[in-house]
Design a protein around this nucleic acid. Structure first.
Lengths: 126, 126
DNA sequence: AAATTTAATGCAACTTAGCTGCAATAACAA
DNA sequence: TTGTTATTGCAGCTAAGTTGCATTAAATTT
């Protein structure tokens, strides 16, 4: 289980995340890579990269799946509380590098807390 | 603009939320009401109820759209920070009645913060 | 209480995200 | 160089959500 083969397609997907720290919607990635590989391949590579914990995924305000590289936003593996920001204007989506504290829910067993900030990014709020 | 006509279908949808404080996925509502009305009607009624601020919507962990009645979870209109909980086992989804404080993101203009707790509910964590 | 207006609905067809099965291809180890 | 098998392409599928348009039925007016 995991990325055992470094194929041309896998390298291609990885390089996108290396050259841009923003999160990427799958839809965007499929479009970006449509000349290089099949959409099914994109879906499957992303799934493998996530298993390998090279990227992590979350659901955007639009209900689409987004992926982002795992770096300083989640140093010690996949932390439970990992906020993301999505710009309602330009669509820019990124990891929020900020600690967040959450209240406990008594009698509940919480695995993850997804936090999505939605609004205008630095560029679009000028 | 808004709910101008109290049709049989509108009353039917509203009564579901009145008889159950849990959030409802649109998929579930469409199925629940399939004998009474067309799925397009369900989608359109929910849209109108949301405009009227009788219900509010959010995206679940699965990317599906969920609706919940606006009551004590959002007394003073639609507050920015309004957490929801979704059970990974039974699917039960509900508003979390708890205040949450969020850090400010400098230079960003945040409209809403979606917080989704994901894990096991009281029943399923026994 | 009929006529009128127009919001609401049903229907059928469409769009799009994401998934599946299987045959063909290409990493990589021997 | 060959053999094994992970990976990919392809075609077709599923399911959520949307759209246009003709029809129906609330609510208002006469």
């Amino acid at each position: 289980m995991g990325i055992t083969r470094k194929t041309k397609s896998v390298k291609s997907v990885i390089s996108i995340f290396e050259n841009n720290s923003d999160a990427q919607s799958v839809v965007h990635l499929v479009d970006l890579l449509k000349r290089e590989m099949n959409k099914t391949t994109v879906y499957r590579i992303l799934e493998r990269l996530e298993n390998e914990k090279l990227v992590h995924s979350f659901v955007g305000k639009d209900g689409l799946k987004w992926y982002a590289k795992c770096t300083d936003c989640c140093l010690d593996e996949h932390k439970d509380i990992h906020p993301h920001f999505q710009c309602k204007d330009c669509g820019k989506t990124q990891c929020v590098k900020q600690e967040i504290t959450m209240p406990l829910l008594p009698n509940y067993q919480i695995d993850t807390v997804e936090v999505l900030f939605y609004g205008l990014c630095e560029q679009c709020s000028i």
